[in-house]
Amino acid sequence: MTELIKMVVVLVLLSSSSGGLLHWLKTQTSSKIEDQQVKFVKGPALKSIFEGSSNDPTADRFTLKVGETEKNFFVGKFDGKTNCVAFEGFGKGGYGGDIGLMIGVDIDNGSVLGAAVTTHSETPGLGAKAKEDPSFVSQLKGLSIESPILVTNDGGKINAMSGATITSRAVCNAANDAGKIYKEIKSQLTEKVKSF
C-alpha cells in the first residue's frame, strides 16, 4: 500500500512540477516566438509585397478583431506616406487544404499592391508554383480588393497556372477572403494605419 501511494505521489509531483515549469516557459517565450514566426514565415512574403518600403513591416504591426479572431496587420511606409497595409486571407478549396495569401492593399483607393502565398500544402511542381513563381500572384497587382477576383474560367481576369486550376482558384478565394475582411473593417483599419 505504501508503495502504491509513493508511486502515485511521485508521479503526480513530477508531472505537476513539469507542467508548471512548461507553463512558465511558454508564457515567457510566447511573444518572442510570435516575433520569430512573423519574421520567418510572413517576413519573406511581406518583403516581396512592400518592396522598397522605408520601414520594417514585420515590426510595424497591430492587431484588430475581425469577427471572433484577432488578425495581424502589417504597415508599409513609402516615401514618408503610410497608406499601405498587408494582411493574410485564407482560401478554401486548395488541393491540399487552405492556402494562406498575404496581400498588400493601398488604403487610399483599395487597390492591391502585391501578394504572396505564405502557407500551402499543394503538389510540388504544380500547385506549389503559386508560392515559388511570383508571376502568378503578380496578376493580382492593381486590381481592386473590394470587387471579386476570379480566374478566367470563372469569368475573371486571372490566368490560372497551367496544370493547377484548383490551386489558382483557391488563391483567388484567399484574395476574396482578404477583400471581405477589408470591407468589414475598412474604417478601423484606415484609422489605425494613419496613426503609424
Binding site: M7, V10, L11, L14, S15, S18, L21, L22, L25, K26, T29, K32, I33, Q36, Q37, K39, F40
Partner: peptide, 26 residues
Amino acid sequence: VRIACFIVIIATFVTVVELLMQAFAY
C-alpha cells in the same frame, strides 16, 4: 513506475528545447 517518470522528465526537457528553439533559432 520508473519508465513513466523518465518519460515525463524527458518530455519536459524536450518541450523546453522546442520552445527555446522557436524563440531563439526559428
